[in-house]
Design a protein around this nucleic acid. Structure first.
Length: 349
DNA sequence: TAAGCGTGGTA
DNA sequence: TTACCAAGCTT
């Protein structure tokens, strides 16, 4: 089966089984002349970076409700955007999302550039997202290469070289299969295929539109591809988190530095996170230990002992105080929300 | 260039 | 319970 036939058979499958998503313009709608909104495509693609469709849906609805256009988002306050992103993870995405929105609003008159190279120059847009916006939003024949495409290509061509070493080869194979027409539908089709049929474990080869041409299926190696370089074991770190309020019942928090872990997010004052936990309170108080939370980040496990105190007056300038009307635990990154959930019963009024 | 960067679902 | 995994980008 040649590349043209591969694309044709995949598009035929997509025409009848495309999944519905809040940001998606389906194949029937496209044929009726409906074009996607580039802002919504870009926003969804940034949210979908390393994140499941199920997790993204609520955030996408919330963001587009609050900010229907890129100009609206560009005008939003940083703190509000970070708070709305809380829980979705990879917070550099939110910071770059705002930067990108402001570049598009200011330098491009609120109109997204269409070509892949200009898109690639924008904050938070890398090779995958540039190709996905160009193809899905503008129907340009660019090739998306995400984890799904890597997996599908490695199986279709029975590539046993491990990722990420094999990525250039898989990218080349994907590029040769991308059709000049209906590139947007094709990009979504191949990712749908990876997400629903050519899954990491137990692929459903029996109902795959590429059953016949798939070499790994023929050889019986589909489920073991793609090979990946083994990842190192995650180390464990420990620390303390400190929750307290002022006499007027305002919560005492801090804004984390822009760069690094949970950059730009709200958090509770805490100790260093190290091999052994060290009690390093942010201010003198009668601290009580309430319990411990466990949280796993991309590259380490964390145990935090939750300490509480009341009626704190000696606040430093590095702290942020938020009254009951201003503070929402949903503005916190998940690890900090876990800490709050332990402490909250101790603060009844 | 390889490491740093979240979270929730799943087996 | 742990390890793996998901529509990656930045430095």
């Amino acid at each position: 089966m040649n590349h043209g036939e591969l694309a044709t058979s995949l598009l035929a499958w997509y025409d009848k089984s495309a999944r519905e998503m809040p940001w998606r313009v389906g194949p029937a709608q496209r044929k009726a002349g409906i074009k996607p909104d580039p802002y919504r495509i870009w926003l969804s693609e940034v949210m979908l970076q390393q994140t499941t469709v199920a997790a993204v849906k609520k955030y996408f609805e919330r963001f587009t409700s609050l900010w229907p256009t890129v100009n609206d988002l560009a005008a939003a306050p940083d703190d509000q955007v970070m708070g709305e992103w809380a829980g979705l993870g990879y917070y550099a995405r939110a910071r770059n999302l705002l930067k990108c929105a402001r570049v598009v609003a200011t330098d491009h008159g609120g109109i997204f550039p269409q070509d892949r190279k200009t898109l690639l120059s924008l904050p938070g847009i890398g090779p995958y997202t540039a190709a996905s916006v160009a193809s899905i939003a503008f129907d340009l024949p660019e090739t998306v290469v995400d984890g799904n495409v890597e997996r599908v290509m490695s199986r279709l061509h029975n590539v046993h070289d491990p990722l990420p070493l094999s990525k250039p080869q898989l990218t080349d194979l994907a590029t040769r299969t991308t059709p000049k027409k209906r590139a947007g539908d094709y990009a979504q089709a191949i990712m749908d295929l990876g997400a629903t049929i050519c899954t990491p474990k137990s692929p459903a080869c029996g109902i795959c539109p590429w059953f016949a041409p798939c070499i790994a299926r023929t050889k019986g190696t589909a489920a073991e591809l793609p090979k990946k370089v083994a990842k190192p074991v995650k180390p464990t770190r420990k620390g303390f988190a400190y929750i307290a309020r002022t006499p007027s019942k305002a919560w005492i928090l801090e804004r984390r530095p822009e760069k690094g872990l949970l950059g730009g997010m709200l958090g509770w004052p805490g100790s260093q996170w190290a091999t052994e936990a060290q009690h390093e309170p942010p201010f003198d108080a009668d601290w009580t230990e309430l319990g411990e939370i466990k949280h796993t980040f991309t590259h380490f496990h964390l145990f935090l002992r939750v300490m509480v105190a009341s009626d704190i007056q000696n606040i430093s300038e590095s702290h942020i105080t938020l009254g009951a009307n201003e503070f929402k635990s949903s503005d916190l990154p998940t690890v900090m929300r876990k800490v709050f959930d332990i402490a909250q019963p101790n603060f009844t009024d």
